[in-house]
Design a protein around this nucleic acid. Structure first.
Lengths: 223, 223
DNA sequence: AAACGCTATGCTGCATACATCTATTCTGTC
DNA sequence: GACAGAATAGATGTATGCAGCATAGCGTTT
């Protein structure tokens, strides 16, 4: 048997992992991302880590200042508002801009998601919720036929996720119940071959989420 | 008098300059961006140049392959279609998502643009057209109140620009005449304090542009 | 005691050397 | 002459050293 050292992660892997940690709130606002520390953790030099951080900087989730470091940003209330405003609009576009044709595989994947979500709603667990919600996002993104829209959908997901998942602790099982409805409705839409309905379902449920965000976090927003 | 060497450009400057050259078609599809060459041109090492290229890679305008190089991509017909589809939708959102309040300065800036465009329409010049159209884009972007939308507006501009400016040679002064109407209508909308109308004007004129693109470039698109 | 300034420390930003990958060219053999 | 394989050139990917900047702590001065 040959001893193999695992291949070192590429820049994209590091980028994805850092983003994952931010939107899953493993890194919290104010936390410092030290290049040297991450480099040793991933078993590479500072160079690819720097590259990964640099690539995600345009999302506004981290702020790098010379001589100080890279810190995870707390999005302002206005920024959170803006992200959700855009996400509402993007959702409906999922069903209208070059929609993909729906395959049996898609429906099967969705059915598996429904099952996972039902299990979650019976025994709620915050970490599990985050994980399943992420899988749902990946699934929806995979249904988007328009490349640009899919990119934007991911970008706003990354921007909104940490805010939303922080609320997960507050909402508890109510969030899981909402997921049950959402996935069930998506499954029905897919079975009808109705991508436009899929977009509307997303639009509606993001709207519900937005309402919770506004109630809990954006109480005194000055537009 | 003190001799001062000009400050070396920062990563953001390099990034902007490379993007400018791509969307102004100074770099054409297939051209190779060599890090060492750009580094010596900008008077820096390869490191910041690499960073700049890496940051713009998510727009899909360049493709970097190990051992080969970074080449400017020709967007596929489907990608061009997707960019325009999204741009049409984003345009209307300019007027509806957290619109900025309009100041007298905005109107003054717009009046200056109208003047520039009128001069252009009398003596058409392709390079001049590109420059003015870019200034118009910058102006519209500055009117957008929603941070995320503004970012997306810029991203789709970069993605669509090179395609559009290639058509500039074909359309000639007709493009300038369209710009006269567009800027005049925007000015009127601003004077009415009607940001929603500004968005619709953008939507309409992007639609015109889209028609030209479809006629000239997307003849046999297989959706 | 307060305020100022100096210094030590730790981080990022850049430059450079080296490793690795790819395409091409040259060469030897059939 | 054609083809296979090795050598080569040139590009990106990575590691590392050093310079510059910001901050915190401490000592000095007023």
């Amino acid at each position: 048997m040959i001893e193999t050292t695992p291949a070192p992660p590429r820049v994209e892997d590091i980028q994805t992992e850092i983003l994952r940690r931010i939107c899953f709130v493993e890194y919290q606002a104010g936390d410092q991302l030290k290049e040297a520390q991450l480099a040793s953790e991933f078993g590479v030099s500072r160079t690819p880590v720097r590259d990964a951080i640099s690539r995600i900087s345009h999302l506004g989730l981290v702020e790098t200042r010379n001589g100080v470091g890279t810190v995870v940003r707390q999005l302002s209330k206005a920024e959170i508002l803006h992200v959700y405003e855009v996400r509402l609009e993007l959702a409906t576009m999922i069903g209208t801009l070059s929609p993909r044709t729906i395959s049996q595989d898609d429906i099967a994947t969705c059915e598996a998601l429904v099952a996972d979500v039902c299990e979650l709603s019976e025994r709620f667990d915050a970490k599990h919720y985050v994980h399943i919600n992420h899988k749902l996002h990946e699934f929806i993104a995979s249904l988007i036929g328009n490349d640009v829209l899919r990119s934007f959908w991911w970008q706003t997901y990354y921007q909104a996720a940490s805010t939303w998942y922080q609320l997960g602790d507050v909402l508890g099982s109510r969030a899981a119940n909402a997921l049950v409805k959402e996935t069930t409705e998506i499954k029905a839409a897919l079975e009808n071959g109705d991508m436009r309905a899929v977009g509307y379902v997303q639009r509606i449920h993001i709207g519900y989420g937005f309402e919770h965000i506004k109630k809990h976090l954006l109480a005194d927003i000055d537009r």
